[in-house]
Design a binder for these strands. Sequence first.
DNA 1: CGCAATTACCTTTTT
DNA 2: GGTAATTGCG
Length: 747
Amino acid sequence: MNISITDGLTLPQKAAVEHVDGPLLIVAGPGSGKTRVVTRRLANLVTTAGISPRNLLAITFTNKASKEMAERVQSLLPGSRIWVSTFHRFCARLLREYGEMVGIKSTFSILDTTDQKQMMRLVLNDLDYDTVHYAPNKVLWRISNAKNDLISPDQFNSRYEDSIADHWQAVIRRVYPAYQQRMLESNAVDFDDLLVHTATLLAENPELRKDLGEHYRYILVDEYQDTNLAQYQIVAALAQQHGNLCVTGDPDQSIYGWRGARIENILRFERDFPTSKTIRLEQNFRSTQAILRSADSLIANNQQRKQKSLLTENDEGQPVQLLCFQDSREESEGVALKIRELVDSGEFNWNQFAIFYRVNALSRQLEMAMMRHRIPVQVAAGVAFYDRAEIKDLLAYLRLIENAADTTAFLRVVNKPLRGLGKTSQNRLLRWAEENHLTLLQAAVRAKEVPKLSKRAIFGFQRFAEMIDGFSLANAGSVGDLLVEVVEKTRYTAAWSGSYNESDTEKMANVEEFIGAARQYDEALGDERSLQGFLEQTALVSDTDWISDESGQATLMTMHAAKGLEFPVVFVIGVEEGLIPHERALKEGDRREVEEERRLLFVGMTRAENRLYLTESRVRAMHGRNVPTIRSPFLQEFECQRVEFGGDGFFADEEWRQPTHDVSKLADIPTLPKLMTGASLLSGDKTAAEIPTGFAIGTQVRHPRYGLGTVVDVGGFGAKRSITVKFPTDDRTETFIASKAPLQPVG
DNA sequence: CGCAATTACCTTTTT
DNA sequence: GGTAATTGCG
């Protein structure tokens, strides 16, 4: 038995598998057999160390990774039940049980980004912010950043109390608490809240921490380099007592910094857990020498990095090729032809190909080319199933049935199908509900009392409320049956059923498919099924969960989505300045961001087993316009063979396309005080550096309506701070209240 | 008062 | 080339 578990492993792999107690850091390079090692280690904990499977907990980032890990553990330990879960799912489960401690009821809804935006709209309207100047997305992004750093509305407020700073801070100080308040009233959480609430829950309840610590005695965290502060806190809390924490990761594959991930978490693991043991898995079993050499040579250009060597005993293989095309259409065609060629030669099958890109927008053209050439593809993204309007509507019905307080769900479906309950009536109901501290559903029941509501609207709201009230899983029996009942009673499909209109039949098909998904859930869960469970499952799926390596299709996805996967043949398309590295990273001029872009390309390249092709195009359509491209500076950092397609040598002169950004000489921009550093939190130092910007006389500012101007006077203090700006364009001078005006300092 | 078509805006990466 | 607010119409 033991023999089989460590069979065929290298020495470091074996050491990792056999490690039992205490903290363990596995630094695993790409293709180093990490999943193999951690699954065998889990098996070893059970079979050799005699630990009960129920005392093990494995946490991953994506559903895909968790599914794979669960399956592989299952095959090593048939019948055992080890909890393998994503961070978000783990948190959701914990909150279902203990959420009351942080103020949420077990029926809470999980809002997706669309619902979040809707919620933010409500909040901004409430606070009289105009959603044109304050795009909900941008506001949400700032709030998300705060949450990733575990900064509560109160902390945010006190942190920026005295700094009038840029008006964004003033806005967020007001919006953040209001948003959280609304979420609480709706008994809803967003993705970030799942982590934040859990972190808070664990931080505030030593008792619970102790219980969970005793339950989950051995914890594994995958992709540790991608954890943010909230996740770090959660993990630390769980492992606090026993220290049996095994983390795996690779700093060179940290690509989620923009989402709050702290590469420092893995870099400081050894300091956080002084008794920890570190094992490096450096031998690559995946790629050819040529591929690995190029990838290694690329990543070596990162300065903020621990030296690491990638080795392989694999064959040299074919050189990495850079395919150069005239335009993006030829690029798609070229990739398609190349795939055809390799398949026709009998060397590869469809499912052995992957095409990666930096932004989803690049997938469309590729998809069309693949269709033209009859190449079967699966695309991770596009219009995700659960993003389709019909599905979201039906989901909103289910959410409302489960959680009567769900404001966004109510507003989404109250007039779908049309019931004559338009914006005006909705707003009246909304206002009245707010004044009387009622949920929208409660208010709808008492619609008679709402001022100025028309007879028709009163009747409509009441009927709607009654209808929702009549639905329940208990009565329907199963989620699928409940869904069918909803569709029938609401006459949701009535307007388009029987229509031969293409979009109508597609909508019908979507609804059918969704009902099918619900029935599948019912079947899988049996007596364990719950509306909540179904909603949780749908809320936490991602676009990439649908791809499978046995589908017999080529795979299209972003490089971010590609992490953890491997394919015999990989194409990375659009390797051009502005795309890889992305212009956003270049604009910031921040070395860290460019280094993250480099890591991203590194991740993409190291997915390849046998063949690696990068492509660039001389012209690329950006924002609907064809723009000449510039060579990616990364292409100078490793060896690859150029192959020109099309053209007539006319553009042989390469001068004009040289990179405009010298990424090798980027200044180390001092990390702007990002509110609070992980280190300061660890050392208990709660002070964070302030960002001392403000509106001084002479400062250049931009106003969305009046354009550029110069501050000529400031007055008042605190919230009453006023700023007088002179706009040269039409010789206008305006005075604003600093905390309310949409003024932005320039430069 | 409510609905539908038209305009304007943005577009990194994801749970 | 997609979505959402805004305007015009019934």
